[in-house]
Amino acid sequence: MLQAEIKSLLKEDISILIKVANSGKHYLCDCGEASLLTVKEIQTVSAVFISHTHIDHFANFDGIFRHQIGSGEKVVICGPKNIHHQVEARLKSYTWNLIDEKAIEYEIREIVSKEEINVYTIRPPHWNLELVKTQNFLFEDEYVNVDFAILDHKTDSIAYLFKEKDTVTFHENASDFKKGKWISELKTAFESNDADKEIEIEGILYKASELFHLLSRNEGYKLGVIMDHAVDEINYQKIKSVFINADLVYIETFYKDTDQEFAKINYHSFASASGKIMNDCKVKQAVPIHFSRRYTEDDQQEIETAFYKAFRN
């Protein structure tokens, strides 16, 4: 199951680490200040997901690549329009005369629209951008698919949904057949919906469809991160289209309800609004995050109380 850890203290800028259980795979959402993020964790991050490049979400990017350089790995960076130019500018602001071109490779995926993702590569020591292709999906690896919504924060702010790959379970007590390689063949046919595939068991051929009742599909865990966004119906329709029935969502709750006029002016959300949209999405578990640095621990408690009251209706 996917696990998430907030790596920022109360008055620090936001950063969230997402881990795949029983693997060394980590993903990072936003690059704010993060006192709790270790060097070892940074070095196992294979993809960075930037919501937007306001300073409180992007200021620590230099610290991240400081501990990735020299790994020889390819690291994916996903973010809003122009993220490739902003990463390029950060990298080119340093001197790299002692760094080999194989020290690292960044693959930058610029989110232009839901259907248009521009993919760039950039490598040391000159850090020259190369447009590789344009694709219609954001990110997929052996563990997760990542969907997204482009929200309005007076600039594009990307909300991400990490969905674990579905798994298939074989119910061994549902038949008297002996175990064998036929089980993996059946799972493959099931996953590809190949009902007519012939499966041989103990010398007898069966159509895969005759054996599908021995399997069940387990839907992957869905974990979302929704950063800065204005409280408006267009944003909420986009959130509902992606995050409906998610298992766990971390959502920006920058202001107290009593400060919702500031939220409106600054295109942020406030406590009860974030709680309500999570309720509307039928999210199983929701966590308010990213509070204004003006607030004390008592203010945070007030935000959380209002949020959960609205979330639990």
Rank of each mutant, 00 (worst) to 15 (best):
M1F: 07
A4D: 01
E5P: 03
K7Q: 09
I14N: 04
I18D: 02
K19A: 12
S23I: 06
K25D: 10
K25G: 07
K25A: 12
D30L: 00
L36C: 07
V39M: 06
Q43E: 15
Q43S: 10
V48T: 08
T53M: 11
I55K: 13
D62H: 08
S71T: 13
K81E: 14
N82M: 13
I83P: 01
Y106D: 08
Y106Q: 12
E107F: 11
R109C: 14
S113M: 09
V119D: 10
Y120G: 07
E140H: 09
V146N: 04
I150C: 04
D152M: 06
I158C: 05
L161F: 01
L161V: 02
D166K: 01
V168L: 12
S175G: 08
G180E: 07
S184P: 00
L186V: 08
A189D: 02
N193G: 05
D194H: 05
A195M: 10
K207M: 13
A208N: 09
S216H: 12
K222S: 08
H229D: 02
A230G: 13
D232I: 00
E233S: 08
Q237T: 10
K238H: 12
I239R: 00
I244E: 11
D247R: 01
V249K: 00
Y250R: 02
E252P: 03
E252M: 04
T253P: 05
Y255N: 11
D257A: 06
S269Q: 04
C281W: 00
K284A: 13
V287G: 03
P288R: 09
T296H: 02
D299Y: 04
Q301L: 15
